[in-house]
């Protein structure tokens, strides 16, 4: 195993990934520390005058502390829609895999339709207005769930197929009802695919720009991605503040990753071996 070529290629791989991930991050950090005039040059250089604290204050205070509201909104949005997606998609995937009947092809077609058919903005707003959900966080959560659910159902359905039926049968013989069977026996076994779904969908929902833009208007409803538009417009851009905003938005997911690193990697690899 200990070939020198292997060690060399390992070092090269580490160096390449460091360049690919750290250089852009360094660029964000440096630009976020510059004054406005200097940042407009968009150069990869150390700032001649460090303005990191001024920029931080300016970004947080912009438009009446919009960024703080936005962080609260984005957190609620991401957590709530992920929770709903995981539970519902696991239920649907489980039932569709375990109990195929003559409706299953139709249901499969509907799941696929959810992936294929693009959303239309104006009719969706009409529906939300009739339901009284337009411009509310609840309405946007439902939209995110609707757009993400199909993908999750497919993942769960494929994964449930790898769990032996005998596990279900043993639980039923031991006296578990359907609710208990699902929540106490099956759901824990789905752990690795749940981790996958949480990561993929959390990134998608947290980074979503277009849906909040159209379905959740109003400053008090902003999500973090929308705050980027405070500093970037068609003719003029405050690059230093824009990059500071990007830095602030990037940090929470990064901290989360640092904390849950082990679970995430364990979840992904256990899925890979079983899959």
């Amino acid at each position: 195993m200990k070939r020198p070529g292997g060690i060399l290629s390992g070092i090269v791989a580490i160096a390449v990934s460091a360049v690919v991930f750290l250089v852009p991050f360094a660029f964000i950090f440096l630009t976020a520390s510059k004054t406005r005039a200097e940042s407009a040059l968009l150069e990869f250089s150390l700032p001649t005058e460090w303005a990191i604290w001024e920029n931080l204050v300016a970004v947080v205070e912009a438009r009446d502390y919009m960024l703080l509201t936005a962080f609260v909104n984005s957190t609620i949005l991401t957590v709530a829609s992920i929770a709903i997606m995981v539970v519902f998609a696991a239920m649907v995937g489980y039932v569709m895999q375990r109990r195929p009947n003559r409706w299953t092809p139709l249901l499969n077609a509907l799941v696929l339709a959810g992936l294929i058919i693009p959303p239309a903005v104006v009719p969706t707003i009409w529906v939300l207005q009739r339901l009284g959900l337009y411009a509310t966080l609840g309405g946007l959560i439902l939209i995110e769930v609707a757009f993400g659910l199909s993908f999750c159902v497919l993942l769960f359905r494929a994964f449930v197929a790898t769990i032996p039926r005998e596990v279900d049968e043993a639980a039923i013989i031991d006296g578990a009802g359907p609710v208990r069977l699902f929540f106490q026996v099956v759901l824990p076994l789905l752990r690795s695919v749940i981790v996958t779904v949480v990561i993929v969908q959390a990134v998608a929902v947290f980074n979503d720009f277009q849906n909040p833009l159209y379905f959740l208007p109003g400053d008090e409803n902003a999500t973090v991605q929308l705050t980027l538009y405070n500093f970037r417009s068609q003719f003029t851009t405050q690059w230093n503040l824009l990059f500071m905003d990007i830095l602030l938005i990037t940090v929470p997911p990064l901290i989360m990753y640092a904390f849950f690193n082990r679970q995430i990697v364990a979840g992904l690899t256990s899925g890979a071996v079983k899959g």
Binding site: V121, L213, Y214, P217, G218, N230, S233, Q234
Partner: peptide
């Protein structure tokens, strides 16, 4: 209330 400019703003 702020909105983006350009074609995205037209759509909004």
């Amino acid at each position: 209330e702020l909105r983006p400019g350009g074609s995205e703003g037209d759509n909004i």
